[in-house]
Design a protein around this nucleic acid. Sequence first.
DNA 1: GTTGCTGCAAAGTATTTGCACCGAT
DNA 2: ATCGGTGCAAATACTTTGCAGCAAC
Lengths: 142, 142
Amino acid sequence: MHRDNYKAKLDASQYKLTGQRATVLEVMIRNRGKHLSAEEVLQQARLLRPNIGIATVYRTLEKLASLEILYKGMFDSGKYRYELADDREHHHHHVVCVNCGSITEIKDDLLCELEKNIEKQGFRIVDHDLKFFGYCPNCTKS
Amino acid sequence: MHRDNYKAKLDASQYKLTGQRATVLEVMIRNRGKHLSAEEVLQQARLLRPNIGIATVYRTLEKLASLEILYKGMFDSGKYRYELADDREHHHHHVVCVNCGSITEIKDDLLCELEKNIEKQGFRIVDHDLKFFGYCPNCTKS
DNA sequence: GTTGCTGCAAAGTATTTGCACCGAT
DNA sequence: ATCGGTGCAAATACTTTGCAGCAAC
């Protein structure tokens, strides 16, 4: 998806497309496929706009996630990471390397069946989150 | 599994089975199937041993998790929850109700196939973590 | 001038660590 | 006497919030 589409989406929302928000969005677009922490977003955003504050970054990430422009997830431990949501639309999963910490994406779609089973038990499922833990190809060699 | 087996497992480790550790273990056993936060463990532990401290609870939960007596996972947001590990041995998953926050367990095993696919791409998978988000039967009614 | 947005600093949560003391060998 | 374990308090890590000032309409 092109960056103008994200901006349009934000523009159409109840929120203003301010310079700071555009900066955060720009950082996320430039890091498509990566899973950045708020601190990492801040550092990169400051290259473009040196005095942006961490609170603004958090507030912006939160808003972008609520608009479903970003996906907010907890991978390893203790902190949230963010990525462009359309990158993970239908359905890809994460492989977290327990050795080097790298996060790789895996495309697959085998979970619909499982969800149907669960719904037979009276649930209504709206989302899922699947992560694998292991060794990435790089770390398998050693 | 009987509580003596857990104690034996802890006993056989490099760690001592102290009163505090037995208390934490007891709390976890009494709450089999629940997913307790450290704070919740503390509150229950204090019923049995009023002056146990939060640091001891954290240290004990950490040790029990490293011995694979407990499973440590992040469910909703911002804090870890712990459960007896053998309750989740091979393979059950969690359904988190986005309305009431209840966590239900679902037995299933459909992921081996998926793991094999990923391993063909050069990874070595050692664990996975699958969560569904939706509405539990109770909250579906309303 | 109202209203929403920002940066800073302070507060809030969850967790970890430093340290003096205790208890079992 | 040693050494691991404990409780308390302080420190840390991440995130949220209060607030005064700013920017846009």
